[in-house]
């Protein structure tokens, strides 16, 4: 892998109507890496992605995508990047084949017919090529969108919540496809809400209210959050949950079946509180690994506190 990163942007700022949607975001994605982009709804993920592919111009900040300047060379970046929008944005009144032919023509792929045929075969769309895009199910629409994004052999793929509304099997296939492409050297930045998808990424970046909160591998991010997690188990977990609320050291209480996960920043205080409640309610207490989800919920709460 060469040294220059595929994405290297610094201090990106974008405001809409006086509201800072993206606030001083810096992001680095190495070549051939699958980088997850996470954050709550409205946190600025889509806007950041649009800034990087030239669909929006930043108010402040600078950087390179594939070695090209995002302010000056947007038209060149467009040729090398495949951008898959959050909402299906191909023509529903065109067939799969016609949509792909349209994309091939705009990128000047020659011979267009051959590129379309190869892409159809590559993604298993050949049998459905005469079907109107509007009549496809969510999974097939997503497959068409992916086909259209990778047909021109981009070096960077920007995927904005690609698996929203897609069933688990199609999701699994989609991720297998992404991993295969990354193995061939394609760089991928993918935004998602799903924890299992985040864990499939080489690195993750967490953004909340326009600010980048954490970045690194999943293990690094979890460790960096500095959280302690304890599990209470027993018949009285609902009572335990009520008792724990508001006690020193307790930041999050989440029931999982018959168990109760308690998470906090101050490990010692959390331990004291949990011990006390476990004794009162007759629950068993044991330490546990902090999950990525616990970390994200913690980040969200923290970011909201900062906003207030």
């Amino acid at each position: 892998m060469s040294a220059a990163p595929a994405i290297d942007v610094r201090g990106l700022v974008k405001s809409f109507g006086g509201r800072r949607v993206v606030d001083d975001v810096s992001l680095t994605v190495a070549k051939g890496e699958i980088s997850g982009f996470l954050g709550p709804n409205g946190s600025g993920k889509t806007t950041t992605i649009r800034l990087m592919c030239g669909l929006l111009t930043p108010d402040a900040g600078e950087g390179q995508v594939l070695g090209m300047d995002i302010r000056q060379q947007g038209h060149l970046i467009k040729r090398e990047v495949g951008y898959m929008t959050q909402r299906f944005s191909f023509y529903e009144d065109l067939t799969i084949e016609e949509n792909l032919a349209f994309v091939a023509g705009l990128y000047g792929l020659s011979p267009a017919r051959q590129h379309v045929r190869d892409t159809l075969a590559d993604l298993g769309l050949t049998a459905r090529r005469q079907q109107l895009a509007g009549s496809l199910s969510g999974g097939w629409k997503q497959r068409l969108a992916l086909a259209a994004c990778i047909m021109h052999k981009p070096r960077l793929l920007l995927l904005d919540e690609p698996t929203a509304g897609v069933d688990p099997k199609a999701r699994r296939e989609f991720w297998d496809e992404i991993h295969a492409r990354a193995h061939d050297g394609l760089t991928v930045l993918v935004s998602t809400h799903y924890m299992d998808e985040a864990e499939r990424c080489h690195r993750i970046n967490y953004i909340a209210y326009g600010k980048l909160v954490a970045a690194g591998t999943v293990a690094q991010v979890v460790k960096g959050a500095g959280l302690t997690t304890l599990v209470l188990e027993g018949p009285q977990t609902p009572a335990a949950a009520r008792a724990l609320r508001g006690m020193p050291g307790v930041d999050q209480i989440a029931p999982f079946g018959n168990t109760l996960h308690v998470v906090g920043r101050d490990g010692a205080a959390l331990d004291r509180s949990a011990r006390q409640v476990a004794q009162q309610t007759g629950c068993a207490l044991r330490p546990s690994e902090t999950s990525l989800e616990d970390v994200f919920i913690h980040f969200m709460g923290e970011a909201r506190d900062n906003m207030a």
């Binding site: 592919c53 030239g54 669909l55 038209h75 467009k78 040729r79 990047v81 951008y83 929008t85 909402r87 299906f88 944005s89 191909f90 023509y91 994309v103 705009l106 990128y107 000047g108």
Partner: peptide
């Protein structure tokens, strides 16, 4: 929503 896509292409 197809404008976003059209604009992201050359």
């Amino acid at each position: 929503g197809t404008m976003e896509n059209l604009l992201s292409m050359p």
